[in-house]
Nucleic acid binder design. Structure first.
Length: 212
DNA sequence: TATTGGATCGCC
DNA sequence: GCGATCCAATAG
């Protein structure tokens, strides 16, 4: 592992009291999606410590949201969305990529927040290895599939608790300016402007036509 | 069992 | 702009 800075060491030894806990996630999903902006995602593997600031999220909310996996009711795949808040829901998409979500709201109500982009802060050297071919920091985590590749997140972590030491969140350091828009890559539900991002942050995913 | 299309990405 | 590539969900 690369040498750690003082700040990285603090991440590595984050106590359970500093992590965002169940009561952070067990709230209205649109609130959580916005409050996640500026928080720090931490990933620990056997050999690596990785972290980054969340700069873009999307909310998927209820069985009547036509863009949600929970649209039309519970299935084996979306079952986690109905479970208690504070767990990771990770799925495989388009035959190539994983997407990371955090389950929100009380048990029984299906909802989650998709993490769409991060500003990487720890472990960039390893991220460049895993994101083969990427040239600039900007491209490491500026998309939901990209950040899963950079953070070594796949189906093995599906259902993991965010109180675990392998994947957790720390509070942000400063308030952020929030913008919003329709969600990306969906064919229905564009009337719900449930994508949130940090204004003027260069690590937000670059989608043609999406507002900045 | 077969078919369809997807909360994406990277190359053309 | 389009193909890759796998799998969940649904229909038959």
């Amino acid at each position: 592992m690369a040498k750690l800075t003082v700040q990285d060491s603090a991440l590595a030894h984050a106590s359970s009291s500093t992590k965002l806990g169940h009561n952070f996630f067990d709230r209205p999903t649109l609130t959580v999606a916005q409050d996640l902006l500026g928080t720090i995602l931490v990933r620990k593997t056997k050999n690596n410590l990785l972290s980054g600031m969340i700069v873009e999220t999307e909310a998927y909310l209820g069985e009547d949201d036509p863009a949600s996996h929970a649209y039309g009711g519970m299935t084996p795949r979306n079952k986690l969305m109905y479970g208690p808040a504070g767990f990771a829901y990770i799925y495989f998409i388009y035959g190539n990529h994983y997407c990371l979500n955090f389950v929100t709201e009380p048990e029984g109500f299906p909802a989650a927040v998709l993490i769409r982009a991060l500003q990487p802060s720890t472990g960039l050297e390893q991220m460049f290895v895993d994101r083969k071919g990427v040239k600039s920091e900007i491209q490491l985590c500026n998309g939901p599939g990209k950040l899963c590749q950079a953070f070594q997140i796949d189906r093995k972590l599906n259902g993991i608790s965010l109180a675990s030491d392998r994947l957790f969140l720390l509070p942000g350091n400063a308030p952020v300016q929030i913008g919003n828009s329709g969600r990306i890559g969906i064919s229905q539900g564009q009337d719900r402007k449930w994508r949130y991002y940090i204004k003027n942050n260069p690590y937000v995913s670059n989608i043609k036509g999406a507002s900045r």
